[in-house]
Design a protein around this nucleic acid. Structure first.
Lengths: 209, 209
DNA sequence: TGATTAAATAATTTATTGATTGTTCAACAT
DNA sequence: ATGTTGAACAATCAATAAATTATTTAATCA
């Protein structure tokens, strides 16, 4: 009863925040602007969110969720080998990040702010992505494509090995094509190590997405 | 004739700068302080260096050189397998960086400033380290330990895969032990891929430094 | 009584001003 | 003529005041 109403106004606030922040950036979007866009006083916002950062957190969580859903859909896609999925997964992630960095810098900034102020959330996002990676690796094991004794650990190590491509902004000014080339190279190296002997000669040569 | 004198004063300036910066940091070390320490006027410093940043650059180049020399000595050390050398090389690099971050933060800051203001120099340092990596890989090939078709490319990819450990300052919430564990995991993965079939069962299990 | 507001309060940002520092260069010293 | 300085100039930093923004709360409204 109270829940739906509250949820509707929260949702409305989040949607309005998304629009304003995409346009003006987080810092330049004031609570007064947001309240006006929602047709209420600034003080009323605090009945729905403890503070400005919490609204940003909600936006970041939605962005993480979108990313994870897209990647999960990939993982569940039939007709691809595990190697192909691994490559597609990580290349997609790189492309999405790179595109956002380029085209939606103001929204991207929210993820950065949240990563700094709420590191647990960023780590949870990484953990969920790792779980998806582990899923690919498990499927590769089950299909006899991979021979990985511990898929959870391997997923963690693959994530570490591809950290440069998860947070390209921290490491480099390289163009997307260069980053993709590097990522493909790293993945070929990694795949050489995890592919079972039966697939060793074929998988590292398979073309990526 | 002019050359030895000029070199001596440049060297003197660099040495004085090192002392002052190690103590006060780059930002708090003024050209006036430095000139006084060298027994000359501030204006005279500009006969030897175009600007303050150029003095910092010289210090960074010296630090890069020290690092590279230490790693080169490692690479040339007899009695270690290529796998062991690879692990030792990258673990040493991580430890040296981590220790500097902890114990010589003001000198470390210079490398960061130069990486930002003079990215070419930072990239050249990475390239020289990559060449040392390639040397290890070549030796592994020659010893029949590795089976790498293109050691230059593999060195590049190994560097990309270990980028997280090259810049530990970006992951300050991780303890050194955690970073080392991750690095070992990544290297085991990589080594699984580059070890020749004859060494496949032994090398990934070898204990690191 | 619960929801909302407008004003008050606290915190942060911005603008302004003065101080400091990097750099240049005319003047001076050798 | 070459080397050096100290003052002038330009750029940056630090301190302070003013403005703005986030948040809280007493008062008002439905």
């Amino acid at each position: 009863m109270i829940m739906p109403v509250e949820t509707d106004i929260r949702t409305k606030i989040v949607a309005a925040a998304y629009k304003l922040i995409a346009r003006y950036g987080y810092g330049k979007t004031t609570m007064a602007d947001l309240a006006e866009a929602c047709g209420m006083s600034p003080g009323n916002l605090y009945r729905y969110f403890p503070g400005k950062l919490d609204i940003a957190e909600q936006l970041a969580l939605l962005a993480f969720e979108d990313e994870e859903n897209a990647l999960r859909e990939l993982v569940r896609r039939p007709g691809l080998s595990a190697s192909e999925k691994l490559k597609l997964f990580l290349c997609t992630q790189l492309r999405v990040t790179h595109a956002m960095l380029k085209d939606d810098a103001k929204i991207f900034e929210i993820a950065q702010i949240i990563s700094r102020e709420r590191p647990l959330l960023a780590n949870q996002n990484l953990a969920r992505i790792r779980a998806l990676l582990a899923e690919i690796l498990s499927a590769g094991n089950a299909a006899g494509e991979f021979d990985i004794p511990d898929v959870v650990s391997a997923a963690e190590m693959i994530q570490c090995a591809t950290m440069k491509f998860h947070y390209p902004q921290l490491f480099t000014r390289l163009a997307l094509e260069d980053l993709e080339r590097e990522l493909r190279g790293v993945l070929n190296l990694v795949l050489s190590g995890i592919c079972s002997k039966l697939h060793q000669s074929a998988s590292p040569d398979t073309q990526s997405a």
